[in-house]
Design a protein around this nucleic acid. Structure first.
Length: 337
DNA sequence: GCGACAG
DNA sequence: ATCTTGTCGC
């Protein structure tokens, strides 16, 4: 299974070069050209990355309130203002005067994120909150760490639920082709997870249920990473996160072992649970990925959690991080010698 | 002005 | 997530 994602770095540069001399644009306008305002920070990140690499007209990208941002240009705010003035743009106190007059935002674009949202709504039709099986013997955990923005290391941990014994740990490294954009995480992390789990499936080591470090249906379009993965593999999955992407719940005054329903602000329906796994830590957020009920998911998470996170996710996190950073350390040491 | 905003 | 990228809504 291969999932095709648009090259947002390339497209962002393409849009940037559409901004004519003597005009400015904003992170927001570029994000909207990509198809979603939520990508504004990713735009800033992409431009910052190119800053050191090669010359681009990034000085024309400013904040949505007309202020000059310090990023994306060698020399920062000062050099950005100089270059804009040289193009005839009036600036007073780090602010473009008559901002609206100089703003360029009519990009020639196919809004690639729009297509991805369409894909998400198709997947969401296939998500089931009913159990695909009624007994779980093994549980898996998956997580990713990053060596840098574009190099991911994924880990898959398989454990026996009854004995809590770790049966295997798999690692996969890959270039990631998609930036982190809130609510589009699956397009970044799914490729690595799929290659990990396809190997496991070939070895008959696929778990009865997989806990994913990412949301399930607790998502603005009801399709987080865990749901996407579950539907593609036709496997029960549970979404587990340390912070909440979507939904309403009060976590005030929770005690260890306590579970509170998370509601959809749109319709008041129960879409997940906040679970206080330990007294010290903040609660974690659990939702159905696919092929399991919220009650079964909640019970399993409580049963598998010794510390804040369920053991399979904790171990996957540890394994991927060691692989991603351990090699970095070794490389630096050998450079020192 | 402060907190959201999966990883 | 790693080491810093912006916008929105209260």
């Amino acid at each position: 299974m291969v999932i095709d994602v648009p090259d947002l770095r390339h497209l962002t540069l393409d849009y940037l070069h559409q901004v004519p001399r003597g005009k400015v644009t904003t992170y927001r306008a570029l994000a909207l050209a990509l198809g979603d305002v939520v990508a504004s920070r990713a735009v800033g990140q992409i431009l910052a990355e190119f800053e050191a690499l090669e010359e681009h007209p990034s000085h024309r990208v400013i904040y949505n309130d007309g202020q000059i941002s310090p990023y994306g240009v060698v020399g920062g705010r000062l050099s950005k203002a100089d270059r804009l003035r040289a193009e005839g743009i009036p600036i007073v106190g780090w602010r473009v005067q008559h901002f609206e007059h100089y703003l360029f935002e009519c990009f020639r674009t196919e809004r690639p994120l729009l297509k991805l949202r369409k894909m998400q709504s198709e997947i969401s039709q296939l998500v089931s909150c009913e159990p695909l099986r009624d007994k779980f013997r093994t549980a898996g955990g998956v997580d990713l760490s990053y060596r840098d923005d574009w190099h991911g290391v994924g880990a898959y941990v398989l454990m026996n639920i009854q004995s809590q014994e770790i049966l295997s740990i798999d690692i996969a490294e890959q270039q990631v082709a998609f930036p982190y954009i809130p609510s589009y995480l699956a397009f970044r992390e799914l490729p690595v997870l799929l290659s990990l789990l396809e190997t496991a499936r070939d070895d008959q080591r696929l778990a009865d249920v997989i806990l994913v470090d990412g949301s399930g249906i607790l998502h603005p379009r009801q399709v987080g990473l865990a749901s996407h993965l579950g539907v593609i593999l036709n496997l029960p999955t549970i979404g587990v996160t340390k912070s909440k992407l979507y939904g309403e719940v009060s976590i005030h005054g929770m005690k260890a072992g306590e579970v509170r329903a998370i509601l959809d602000p749109e319709n008041g329906r129960k879409i997940g649970a906040a679970i206080k796994t330990t007294e010290r830590a903040d609660p974690i957020y659990v939702s159905v990925g696919h092929g399991i009920t919220l009650e079964m998911a909640t019970d399993l998470v409580l049963r598998l959690s010794i510390r804040k996170l369920p053991v399979p996710i904790e171990r996957a996190h540890q394994a991927s991080r060691e692989m991603a950073q351990g090699v970095k350390r070794v490389t630096q040491q050998s450079l020192d010698l």
